[in-house]
């Protein structure tokens, strides 16, 4: 997992890209001298990676986000600093892209840069989301994202969950749909993302690598309890 210099998360709106980006970058941080997360989300106004900026900087993770006041706005702005990540061969990069083809459009301008570097584009699937429940829906969205981002998707991530109410059955049912998408598109499943608390329940059933997630995209009242 994550053996390319740049990992880009794309996928349908609300499929879990920001949650995964935050988890992956923190998981990888101890293994890399230089690591960065790029917040390319031009779609959603709340629950963006930039809200975790302070926590990430404390872990020596570089956070690339719209500068100044713009980071709090709902404008489709990306930082000029994004271009720098393509030119530093020692930098490990996680990119969190906005949902649907509307969010993927932010990637299009970097087409020439991506062609020169080692990267993977992961399509995140949560089949318990609206308009994402069938392989047909997902494959149509995959094609729309590739068209708007000007980047071929290289692998899938099975991330079916119901937040705090996820069960073993939820994961396995989404995994089956992801397998169907994999079969029909020829794309491998890079990994299956699961809530850490369900690890024991599914680890013997799923053949692909598992990535364990600790939920961080919580409403403010749940975040406060933890502090």
């Amino acid at each position: 997992m994550f053996d390319h210099r740049v990992t880009v998360f794309v996928g349908p709106y609300g499929s879990g890209k920001t949650e995964l980006s935050l988890n992956v970058v923190q998981f990888l941080a101890p293994q890399y001298h230089q690591i960065a997360i790029v917040d390319l989300d031009i779609v959603k106004p709340y629950f963006r990676a930039r809200e975790f900026r302070t926590k990430l900087i404390h872990r020596d993770i570089r956070v690339i986000l719209p500068q100044g006041e713009l980071q709090h706005a709902d404008m489709p702005s990306v930082s000029a600093e994004v271009f720098t990540v393509f030119h530093n061969p020692d930098l490990k990069v996680i990119m969190d892209v906005g949902g649907d083809d509307a969010g993927a459009v932010a990637l299009g301008q970097y087409k020439a840069q991506f062609e020169k570097i080692d990267h993977e584009v992961l399509f995140v699937i949560n089949t318990r989301r609206p308009f994402s429940q069938t392989a047909d829906h997902l494959i149509e969205m995959k094609e729309r994202i590739e068209w708007r981002s000007r980047l071929p998707i290289t692998a899938l991530v099975a991330n079916t969950n119901l937040g705090a109410e996820t069960t073993k059955e939820t994961i396995l049912e989404g995994y089956a749909v992801a397998q169907e998408v994999s079969k029909r598109t020829g794309l491998p499943i890079a990994f299956v993302a699961i809530d850490r608390r369900l690890h024991q329940d599914v680890k013997h059933i799923i053949k692909e690598p598992l990535f364990l997630v600790d939920r961080q995209m919580l409403p403010p009242w749940e975040r406060n309890i933890e502090e």
Binding site: G14, N126, R128, R129, P130, Q133, N161, L162, G163, E165
Partner: peptide
Amino acid sequence: AEKILMKGNEALAE
């Protein structure tokens, strides 16, 4: 109906 994960705005619309 099946339980699905929705944003408040989407759930309201549905």
